[in-house]
């Protein structure tokens, strides 16, 4: 509870240097929405904490067809970014206004399941994450970032500095199903991003939140729709595959049993949403 030192680096090199100097015992904090409750309650009693809030890692940058999202970009900033509708939807469904003003996109990748709705959307978008350490930077697909419940590919001396996503994916849907309408962790979150060629689905990414130890993709469900035109029967097959593939957890919000069933319902609804959107777009252009 009694924290010995609070470090507030003003740049990335300074932050990396502090991390190297103090080692893995240094608790790294971005928006504070995960860390501060643990410190306030005396659950975490770290000697040293480093805040990235003023390390210059916030803000969104467009680079051609890619959006570079700084790790400490707040969810409010993400909500204001119109380039990727799926991310806006995810941010809109996260927490509350004051929390969105504090919580960061990077921090969302460290949020234990069932939190981390933005991470689910990023996974569906096939995001890349840039990691920086004393030996330089490396880029890792988000799909390879999470390695287990609250474990990831980050080395002890590395920081997550940027998340990049393509701005070209247009067929997307996001549904967060919670016990309340707003400001609640998910029972299940579904994010879908599809590419369509000649009326047929040429690539599919279906990501789920609260359905595994971290945001997961369901390859069987994806395979079920590739090559199809999202006919009702195909959607049912994909939903059934997602139910089989998911690994939901039981917590105070929902049981594994219930979450598994809701995965089926909401994968189906997310795909139906895409069908509707596509129909509307076709009708509009006709």
């Amino acid at each position: 509870m009694t924290v010995g030192e609070y470090l507030v680096p003003r740049s990335l090199p300074e932050a990396i240097d502090l991390l190297e100097r103090h080692g893995p015992e240094l608790l790294v904090m971005a928006g504070g929405t995960l860390t501060m409750p643990l410190i306030n309650e005396g659950i975490a009693m770290p000697d040293r904490v480093m805040s990235l809030r003023h390390a210059g890692l916030g803000g969104i940058e467009r680079r051609g067809d890619v959006l570079g999202i700084g790790a400490t970009t707040t969810l409010t900033q993400l909500l204001a970014e119109e380039g990727v509708p799926l991310l806006r939807e995810a941010a809109r469904n996260m927490a509350s206004w004051p929390i969105r003003n504090m919580a960061t996109v990077g921090g969302n990748l460290f949020t234990p399941s069932p939190g981390g709705d933005v991470a689910v959307a990023l996974l569906a978008l096939d995001a890349q994450v840039r990691l920086a350490g004393p030996r330089g930077t490396r880029v890792v697909p988000l799909a390879d970032f999470h390695t287990g419940f609250m474990t990831n590919a980050l080395a002890a001396d590395e920081l997550l500095v940027e998340i990049s996503v393509p701005t070209t994916v247009r067929q997307t849907a996001f549904i967060k199903f919670g016990r309340k309408h707003a400001n609640t962790p998910a029972v299940v979150t579904v994010a879908v991003a599809l590419e369509r060629r000649d009326g047929q689905i040429s690539a599919a990414r279906i990501a789920l939140g609260a359905a595994g130890p971290h945001p997961i993709r369901v390859a069987g469900a994806e395979a079920a729709i590739v090559g199809s035109a999202l006919e009702a029967g195909v959607i049912e097959q994909a939903a059934a595959a997602a139910v089989r593939e998911c690994r939901p957890l039981t917590d105070a919000l929902a049981t594994e049993w219930y979450r598994r069933r809701m995965v089926g319902v909401f994968v189906r609804r997310a795909l139906e949403l895409i069908v509707e959107q596509h129909r509307a777009r076709v009708a509009e252009s006709a």
Binding site: V8, M36, T76, W97
Partner: peptide, 13 residues
């Protein structure tokens, strides 16, 4: 001018 939660914010920030 932006709403934040004072319980999650170190005063130094």
């Amino acid at each position: 001018g932006e709403p934040v939660l004072a319980c999650l914010l170190p005063a130094e920030d």
